Simulated scan of single mutants.
Amino acid sequence: MALVLITTDHLRPGDEVDLLLAEAGHRTRHLPGTGVRDPAELVAALDGVEGAVIGTEPLTAAVLGAAPALRAVVRSGVGHDSVDVEAATRLGISVSTLPGVNANAVAEYTLGLLIAAARRLVPLALGVAEGRWPRGSGRELRGATLGLVGYGASARGVVPLARAFGMTVLCTTSVPDDDPSVRFTDLGTLLRESDYVSLHTALTPRTRRLVDEDALATMKPTAVLVNTARGPLVDEAALVRAVTTGVIAGAELDVVDVEPLPADSPLRGVDGITVYSHMAGQTAEARRAAGVGAARELVAALAGAPRSSVNAHLITAG
């Protein structure tokens, strides 16, 4: 029997995930993440814990090093940039993700952001709420070009939806395939030709601040940036300057550098920039799949047979 810590915010004691772990003989400790947490609190919560299901909880080298019993971590999502995988590997801790678990949810949400930007839905609704009756025109997606940065499961899910709206789809990726509905190209070409640029790439040292001042200057002045991937992919200060000076038309951001968005964030109050609360993958269906998938992966990992670990092979080799 292992003690399991669960920090994913939508998982609760007595739910399906809790029952799956209990059926496997494990005990659970819940500490739902609701924002930035003091690392000391997380270290205390990990005391005696052998397995953890986490959301975007930052598991730094210091935190992992203070959890000697920990053997397996499962992210209830697709990325692992919140976990110091190198430190985890050194400490013999398996780190797993759930590839593609919320791809359909993210794809649909991306199209929602494209429509919201094209038809200015948020400013219109806010105008009515404030007692006005705004009548400015929007634009249609048909005939526009969508540039996808990255070609993982969520980006691939966007392609048929965008094509159904009559959009041309460009993509930059290191692993192109033979999809005839996508034109694969380099990042510079994609930025120059796209009316909408949507980010779907992982956060790595190479992609951090991928969308910087130079990249923004390459885009059309009528272009809109959409980010449902990771906040640090974008240089937020450069983005604010680009939108306020007309270098690009705007941005729809589901993710930001610091979440929740700080009260003094320069992104607040910028006409043309709309910030959402990291909800792209948060449908009832995706949440259930992520929770159940995380529980099953953690049970397997604690038994020494993880199925989607990003570092188990390195631990074995070491």
Rank of each mutant, 00 (worst) to 15 (best):
T201L: 15
V211Q: 06
D47K: 13
L19T: 15
E259S: 05
A164Y: 12
D84F: 09
S96I: 01
T244D: 14
V49M: 10
W133C: 02
D195P: 12
A61F: 04
V292T: 13
H313F: 01
E236P: 05
N104D: 15
L146D: 05
H26S: 09
T168G: 12
G281Q: 10
V197N: 14
Y109N: 10
L98F: 07
V243L: 09
E285S: 14
P13F: 06
G14Y: 14
R230N: 07
L187C: 13
L170S: 11
D177S: 09
A62H: 11
S94V: 09
D235K: 02
G157S: 08
A215L: 04
I315C: 03
A295Q: 04
V182E: 07
L199N: 14
L146Q: 07
S194Q: 11
A164H: 14
T245I: 01
G25A: 07
S154V: 00
P123V: 00
A62Y: 02
R268N: 10
R142A: 15
Y151I: 01
P13S: 12
G250I: 02
G55D: 10
E41T: 08
A301G: 07
E16L: 13
G25Y: 10
V310K: 00
A2H: 04
L190P: 12
V292M: 03
L5Q: 06
S277F: 00
R120G: 06
V83N: 05
R241H: 13
G131L: 08
I315R: 05
H200A: 14
L314K: 07
V158F: 10
T172R: 15
A263D: 15
P134E: 04
Y151A: 01
T172N: 14
E193Q: 15
V234P: 09
V106C: 14
P99R: 12
L5F: 06
G79E: 03
A72V: 02
G14C: 11
D271Y: 02
L146H: 06
D214V: 09
W133F: 15
P262C: 07
R142C: 11
L298K: 02
P68A: 02
L124T: 07
M219C: 11
V240Q: 03
G112V: 06
G152Y: 09
A117D: 08
V106S: 13
R27V: 00
A295Y: 03
G138H: 04
D177C: 10
I248D: 11
R90Q: 14
L203I: 11
E193F: 14
P266N: 01
Y151P: 00
G33Q: 14
L253Y: 00
V158R: 05
M219N: 12
V247K: 13
R119K: 15
A2V: 02
L113H: 10
V169G: 06
L42E: 05
A263S: 12
L113R: 10
S174Y: 00
T56Y: 04
P232M: 00
A202G: 07
G281T: 12
L64K: 05
D18Q: 09
G131N: 08
L124G: 03
A215N: 10
A317D: 12
A61E: 13
G138L: 03
G127C: 08
T34W: 13
T172V: 15
L20C: 04
G231D: 08
T283R: 01
A125Y: 00
G51A: 09
P39F: 02
E50C: 08
A223S: 12
T207N: 13
M1S: 13
M167C: 13
